[in-house]
Design a protein around this nucleic acid. Structure first.
Length: 564
RNA sequence: GUCCCGAUAGCUCAGCAGGAUAGAGCAACAGUUUCCUAAACUGUAGGUCGGAGGUUCGAAUCCUCUUCGGGACGCCA
């Protein structure tokens, strides 16, 4: 039931041709202050149109509005404040949630079409750092929200397993590496070599050339280079999969940059055929003057390919293999120019689907106000943070609920949930200063707060022996104390829609915090289990809250333990 | 130099398709457990919404300029 729509229709009826119903609906707003009712209609715009004082218009309208949906209409200044029929609204939303359960809030914007999501995409042979958390967690949540909106999400881990960095790594390994050490502790050892390479290169620039030449050998399928590369790659993926498992993130494709190695000739050829490739300082570029962008580098002067070349091949491959309706790239803000160029080149090539590609940027994870750099060894390992968080959750359980049966499982859900929620709760463009203390906070606006609220609500339902899906015919309540919670429950579908349209999981995160706060307040002032006439109504409300909190957490990729 | 982001309470952030007294959390202080999990709840205190103009009946929200911070700008990815 859409009350806003209803009000707009009634106003349209009263006003006649004055304004379109759609325009009227856009003017209707939700008052911040609950004393001002549930819907408000400011009459300033009409006042101008009718050349009449807004207060008078509000007064006239208020006298004409009659609807079973609205129990009261007040005039405050130029505002028409409308109060919903609480009983009707409450019973309506509770019935809907009860019948749809987890499917409440699902939409069909996507019409089952494919949406590819380029996410996570770490560079192998480097540790999985906090920096990679963002793309992984934001991408995963957008995939889940897209699915909720009727799309088929295809999660693609475009792993960085190709490029000059591997030439550098091979160079370092050949110079200083020890096979036994690498076998024992692969990522750590490879990272040490990588850092050493950059330290040495500062005084010995010749190393950089060696790195480039090893990469060239890799591209030319040199046996030794390929074997080392394969080895580094396998070891890295083994470590990454452990972390993905911990966060419950899974991929439909691991086609990384190397995958496109033999697909790049075609791109270069296509560019040549379309006369887009020009030589510039021995390199091959596509000029993007009319788009007001710097040229896009396709081939280096030594003939080796670049990031953009591989991304062009990948875009084409994805269109041909997944026939995406939308293609999202959840990649840091610092790569904005790269994606603008990528899309511009594809447009120049005549692919109109280029405009269906969307870069979804996000701010950086900073350390001491600066970018974390693998090269300088300034990294924080995600796995260490997750382990510490799980440990802390475990200690909390020991202290607060020592009789819990599946402590380890719950500690994992809460610990990992805390870290993921922390990354998702704020608008993605904001930079985040890394703070372990902040990340491992379990109180206030945090993942564990929402999980805890959910667990308490579940506990009530258990004690009451409540069976979900058994909504009584008559719910006896005036819904006064429940009203804030009810209005939030009604907002859930709209929140999902906005969250998808803006590719912004933080809207869902904020929503479940709001719902949690409203419910905890209610929990504090009302004895839900008390035996009286309204008990059934209260339990129906609690049941709906659990359904929506759990679904909200799920859309963020976070689990909801029934006890903690 | 050009371009892209950001700036709101001591700290972290909401609010930004313009609207009624600018909201949370953390930290501080004062309370709440004979009662459904206190990872919770209640209350107090805390703000010239970076600055200056402009548009408007009305601006934290839109436009212009400006200051500060971060980032990107051809052979890394």
């Amino acid at each position: 039931m859409n009350f806003k729509h209803e009000l707009a229709a009634i106003l349209y009826e009263i006003l006649g041709q004055e304004m379109e119903a759609k325009e009227l609906e856009l003017l209707i707003e939700k008052p911040k202050n609950q004393n001002h009712g549930d819907l408000a209609f400011p009459c300033f715009t009409l006042a101008k149109l009718k050349r009449k004082a807004p207060q008078i218009i509000a007064q006239e309208l208020s006298e004409k509005i009659q609807s079973p949906y609205f129990e009261k209409v007040e005039v405050v200044g130029a505002y028409l404040n409308v109060f919903l029929n609480k009983k009707l609204a409450a019973e309506n939303v509770l019935a809907e949630i009860n019948s749809k359960q987890g499917a409440y809030g699902s939409l069909n914007i996507g019409n089952n079409r494919n949406i590819t999501i380029d996410m996570s995409s770490p560079n192998i042979a480097k540790p999985f750092s906090m920096g990679h958390l963002r793309s992984t967690v934001i991408g995963n949540s957008i995939a889940l929200i897209a699915e909720k909106c009727g799309y088929q999400p295809i999660r693609i881990n475009h792993i960085g397993d190709w490029g000059t960095q591997f030439g550098k790594l091979i160079t370092a390994y050949k110079l200083w590496g020890d096979a036994e050490k690498v076998r024992q502790n692969p990522i750590k050892e490879l990272l040490t070599l990588y850092i050493k390479f950059h330290d040495e290169a500062e005084t010995n620039p010749e190393l950089i050339d060696q790195g480039r030449s090893w990469f060239k050998r890799l591209e030319d399928a040199d046996q030794e280079a390929l074997e080392l590369w394969q080895w580094f790659r396998d070891e890295s993926l083994k470590e990454f999969s452990r972390i993905y498992e911990l966060m419950n993130v899974h991929f439909d494709s691991f086609a990384g940059e190397a995958f496109y190695n033999e697909k790049m000739d075609r791109i270069v050829q296509l560019l040549e055929e379309k006369n887009l490739l020009v030589e510039s300082n021995q390199a091959q570029v596509v000029e993007l003057l009319e788009q007001d962008l710097p040229p896009c580098l396709i081939k280096k002067s030594d003939g080796a390919t670049l990031y953009a070349t591989r991304d062009l091949a990948a875009a084409l491959y994805r269109k041909e293999n997944y026939d995406f309706d939308l293609s999202l790239y959840v990649v840091g803000n610092e790569q904005s120019l790269h994606f603008k160029q990528l899309i511009a080149v594809l447009s120049k090539m005549g692919y109109e689907w280029a405009e269906k590609m969307v870069h979804i940027p996000f701010g950086m994870m900073l350390k001491d106000g600066k970018k974390m750099s693998t090269r300088k060894g300034k990294v924080v390992l995600l796995e260490e943070v997750l382990d510490e968080s799980i440990n802390m959750a475990r200690n909390n359980i020991e202290e607060k609920n020592p009789n819990l049966v599946n402590k380890d499982e719950v500690a994992k859900q809460v610990g990992v949930g805390a870290v993921m929620f922390h990354d998702l709760k704020n608008f993605r463009m904001n930079d985040i200063e890394f703070s372990l203390e902040e990340m491992l906070r379990f109180e206030g606006e945090t993942g564990p707060y929402v999980q805890y609220t959910y667990a308490r609500a579940c506990s009530i339902l258990r004690k009451a022996g409540y069976q979900s899906g058994t909504l009584p015919k008559a719910l006896d309540s005036d819904w006064e104390k429940e009203w804030k919670v009810i209005t939030l429950l009604m907002e859930f579908p709209n929140t999902i829609k906005r969250s998808f349209e803006q590719y912004d999981p933080s809207q869902v995160a904020k929503y479940i915090i709001d719902l949690g706060q409203a419910f905890n307040k209610y929990y504090g002032e009302v004895k839900i289990l008390e035996e009286n006439l309204e008990r059934e109504a209260r339990l129906a409300l609690v049941s709906s809250v659990t359904t929506v909190l759990k679904e909200g957490l799920r859309l963020l990729g976070i689990e909801a333990p029934a006890e903690m």
